[in-house]
Amino acid sequence: MSRRSVQPLLLLVFLLCAAAFWWAVDPAACRFAPQCPFRLLTGWSCPACGLQRAAHALLHGHPVAALRYNFFFLFSLPYATGACLAAWLPSARWRGRLARVCFAPWMLWTYVALFCAWGVVRNCLGI
């Protein structure tokens, strides 16, 4: 099997395991849930913090509650999906089209800038 077929499979298996875990476990109530190292060390929320609580809420049918744990997912999840498709779609033509947008330098810079800005804003506002 080629890398292009192994990597998405790996990701899929990981996501399914993670979904099963987060469906069964409420991260806010369970001390076994993985903790964010950045938060443990600094006490601040990192830009990705809230993922586990959001996943738990979403898997139990509360999309709005899920979003409130981390508003950045509005941008980062569609972008990550686009990036995955741009790298692994079987059709070379569509892969190329998506890659021209998702992996363009300006897009990568935008993502990095928004990621950092969200990290600052959420800690200032306490969200």
């Binding site: 938060r39 913090c49 993922l51 972008y79 993502y111």
Partner: peptide, 9 residues
């Protein structure tokens, strides 16, 4: 990209 979406990286 995934590492920054799914964890603090």
């Amino acid at each position: 990209i995934l590492s920054t979406v799914f964890g603090c990286q």
